[in-house]
Design a protein around this nucleic acid. Structure first.
Length: 412
DNA sequence: TCTGGGGTCCTAGGACCC
DNA sequence: TCTGGGGTCCTAGGACCC
C-alpha cells in the first residue's frame, strides 16, 4: 500500500472504532525468510510435497502470480526461480503464540482466528492509548521489533469491516473505516470480498447480476433469501450494510474444546489397493485417537472421507453408542464404513478419519455393558502415549504400519 | 505431477417421539 | 379414514476459512 494512503488512514476519525483486525503479512513465508537473510526480497514459497499447494508466498513471489492455495505445480511454472521451503509448523506455532501474547498485553479481549490473525476489542485500552488506531500502530511496531515480520491492521466498528480493512491495508499498512465511512468503504468492493462468500457463492451472485457489495446491499433481502437461502440471504444483506453484530469473543489456548478432530492424507499416487487404504486408515485412526487423548476428549460420531481420482468426495459416518478415543474402535468403524462402500478397484486419492461430537473424556458417561476388556485397551493405549511422549511418534505403532512398502502390505 | 490439511457451519431429508 | 406439527437425532453433502 502506498505510504500516503496509510498516513491518510491514520488521520481518519476512529471514534467508536473499537475492533482491530491484525493480520500477519505472508506469515509462513515471512517467518521462513526472516531466519534466512539471504532470501530477503526474493521469491519464496512455503509449501511443497508432490501434490501440495502453496501455503504462503512472499510478495516477491506474488508478483509472478503465485497465490496461496495454488497447486505447487502451477506455482513453480509461474515462478521457477522461487525458493520452495517446506513448512515448519512448530516454529510458526511458537511465533504465533508470542504474537498473541503481544496482543494480550494491550487487551484481554483477543480472539485468534488462526495462527496469523486475530480480532482485538480495544475499547478498554483507551486509558493507555489515545485512540484505537494508536493501539494498532503500537502493535505493528512491537511485532516488527520482536518478531521482525510485518502485519496489517484494520480498525473499524465491527469485526467484518475490520477484517476487510486489514486486507485493504496489506502489506504493512493500517486502514481505519470510520462509522460514517462504512458504506463508502464497503460498497465498491467485489462481492467475493465478503466474509463467507467464496467462489461458488460469488458465481451465483454474479449470475444474479450482482458484482459489488453495493449491488448486494441494494437488492431486496427477500430476493437474496430466495436465491441464497433464508439464513444466508439475510446475512449477506446485513453484511453488505456493514451491520454485522458478531462481537469479539476472547479465546485462549484450549479452554474451549474443539468440536471435531480429524486427519486426512492424500496419497502420493492414487491407489486402488484396499490394503493400502486400510493401512492408511489405521495410521490416521492412531493419529486421531492420540490427539484426542492428548486433549482429553472423546467422541461418538466417526466419519470416513474418501476422495476419488476425479476429486469427487464422499463421507460416511456412524454414531456409536458410547464416546471413544481408542484407536481400535475408531479404526474398526472407519474400516467398516469403507468396506460398506463396496468399491471395486476405484482410484482413490485421499482418505480421512474424523471424530465429531467431542466431549470431555472424564465426564463422558460411559456405560460398559459387556466385558471390561476395553479397560485393557485403554491401559495399552496409555502406555503407547507414554512411549510416544518419551521416544517420539514412531516409537510405538501398530504392527501393520512397520513395513510401509506397499508391495508388502497386508490388510490389517 | 492441477487442486493440502486443519477445521467450522449450514441444509435437507428421514426416523422417531410426543 | 385424507394424514397436523413440532423437536431432536442421525446422516450426507457442500461451502467456506486459513
Amino acid at each position: 500500500m502506498a505510504l500516503d494512503e496509510t498516513t491518510c488512514a491514520i488521520t481518519a476519525d476512529d471514534t467508536g472504532c473499537t475492533v482491530l483486525h491484525v493480520d500477519m503479512d505472508a506469515f509462513y513465508a515471512s517467518v521462513a525468510v526472516r531466519d534466512r537473510p539471504e532470501l530477503r526480497d526474493r521469491p519464496v514459497i512455503v509449501g511443497g510435497g508432490h501434490r501440495g499447494v502453496v501455503l504462503s508466498a512472499t510478495y516477491a513471489a506474488r508478483e509472478y502470480g503465485v497465490r496461496s492455495a495454488m497447486p505447487m505445480t502451477r506455482a513453480r511454472r509461474l515462478c521457477p526461480q522461487a525458493r520452495v521451503i517446506p513448512p515448519d509448523f512448530e516454529r510458526f506455532g511458537a511465533v504465533s503464540a508470542a504474537i498473541m501474547e503481544t496482543f494480550r498485553s494491550v487487551t484481554p479481549l483477543v480472539e485468534p482466528l488462526s495462527m496469523d490473525e486475530a480480532f482485538l476489542d480495544v475499547s478498554g485500552s483507551l486509558r493507555r492509548f489515545p485512540s484505537p488506531t494508536q493501539v494498532g500502530v503500537y502493535l505493528q511496531a512491537r511485532i516488527a521489533d520482536e518478531q521482525r515480520i510485518t502485519c496489517s491492521v484494520g480498525v473499524a466498528t465491527t469485526t467484518q469491516v475490520a477484517k476487510l480493512a486489514s486486507r485493504r491495508a496489506k502489506p504493512d499498512g493500517l486502514v481505519v473505516v470510520p462509522p460514517t465511512g462504512i458504506t463508502a468503504f464497503l460498497h465498491p468492493l467485489g462481492v467475493e470480498e465478503l466474509w463467507g462468500v467464496g467462489d461458488k457463492t460469488a458465481a451465483q451472485l454474479h449470475r444474479l447480476g450482482l458484482q459489488t457489495v453495493g449491488d448486494v446491499a441494494h437488492t431486496p433481502e427477500s430476493v437474496l433469501q430466495r436465491a441464497m437461502g433464508p439464513a444466508f440471504g439475510a446475512r449477506l444483506h446485513v453484511l453488505a450494510w456493514g451491520g454485522d453484530d458478531r462481537h469479539v469473543t476472547p479465546r485462549r489456548g484450549h479452554d474451549e474444546p474443539e468440536r471435531s478432530i480429524g486427519s486426512d492424507e492424500t496419497f502420493g499416487r492414487d491407489t486402488d489397493d484396499p490394503a493400502v487404504v486400510l493401512r492408511e486408515l489405521l495410521r490416521l485412526s492412531t493419529k486421531v485417537a492420540g490427539r484426542m487423548r492428548a486433549a482429553n476428549v472423546s467422541g461418538r460420531t466417526i466419519t470416513l472421507r474418501v476422495r476419488f481420482f476425479d476429486f469427487t468426495t464422499i463421507t460416511r459416518s456412524r454414531t456409536l453408542r458410547d464416546a471413544t478415543n481408542q484407536t481400535p474402535e475408531i479404526y474398526a468403524t472407519a474400516a467398516d464404513l469403507f468396506a460398506a462402500l463396496g468399491l471395486q478397484r476405484a482410484r482413490i486419492r485421499l482418505v480421512g478419519v474424523r471424530v465429531e461430537g467431542l466431549g470431555d473424556t472424564a465426564t463422558a458417561a460411559r456405560q460398559l455393558m459387556l466385558g471390561q476388556r476395553e479397560h485393557g485397551w485403554e491401559d495399552a493405549e496409555r502406555a503407547v502415549d507414554r512411549a510416544t511422549n518419551r521416544f517420539g511418534g514412531s516409537a510405538v505403532r501398530p504392527a501393520t504400519l512397520i513395513t510401509p512398502r506397499s508391495d508388502q502390505s497386508q490388510a490389517p
